[in-house]
Amino acid sequence: MVGAWLFGAFVLLAIFGPLFVGDPLAYVGAPHGSPSAAHWFGTTGQGQDVLAQVVVGTRVSLLLGVLVGVVVVSVGALVGVSAALAGPRGDRALNLLINVFLVIPGLPLAIVLAAFLPKSPWTIAAVLMFTGWAWNARVLRAQAMAIRDRDFVAAAICAGESRLGVLWREVLPQLRALLMAQFIGAIIFAIGAQVGLEYIGVGDISVTTWGTNLYWAANDSALLTGSWWTFVPTGVMIALLSFALVMLNFGVDELANPRLTTGRIFDAWLRTRNASVGPDAATPIVPLVQDGPQEDARP
């Protein structure tokens, strides 16, 4: 719940926030000015307003994160589920592809790719789409295989339904919760990676994003000059957004995994009766007399 509200706040900030702050690149005050009434978050080493940069940066970073998230999960689902339904030979080829992309370290590849390509946030997005899908494909392949082997899907295949039909009607609905969780995870990955790539300097440093904010903070010797306000707000925003998404994911996990809820209900029920499961995990004993009449009315 907290996660959903917080994420909603970020979306609103990304859409409307830039209307309320000034030009993030304008020279508005003395460089490295600490937070004040005029500049709540202080000014950068270039004399720009940090608050404006953080707010404007939200727009590009969030948009890019969501975009990369959608593509990465879609590609992952396409490759992973195809592998699961493709038959042994196709599966072997696709699985090899997935594993190769998994084992080649993504960030160094992304850095080199981005360095060669024209500098822009869209380059970063494209590069992250290319390097980021394999993990999703791996997880979705495993899950789709488990579903494929269940009786009702096997029955649908035997009944002569086409592969596409099976995929659409039987497999995808089962994957919905997992896809949602993966999407959320992919946004976190995309934002973190984007910020990292821009920080190391392969992004377009004239565009205001969270990543370029941190690039400039480092470039203007934020640490040496002690101007912590140039990098702390952006970092906190990234962390808050990621945290909101992580919390959202915990919620999705609970929906997808009823066992988690069952365990929680069981523990709470035992606690109200002063019982618990001991370290030997022996079945707890709660004599009937402890309960009120409404509970035992059931025969």
């Binding site: 910020v195 941190l214 903070a217 640490l223 002690g226 990098f231 962390a239």
Partner: peptide, 29 residues
């Protein structure tokens, strides 16, 4: 740990370097 892990690696590094390296001087920078 989910909250801490939500920070980008290098950003947390910046913060730690700032606090423990530059401000407190406990570690070489």
């Amino acid at each position: 740990l989910a909250l801490v892990g939500a920070f980008p690696y290098f950003w947390l590094a910046m913060l730690m370097l700032y606090i423990f390296g530059f401000e407190l001087g406990w570690f070489p920078v």
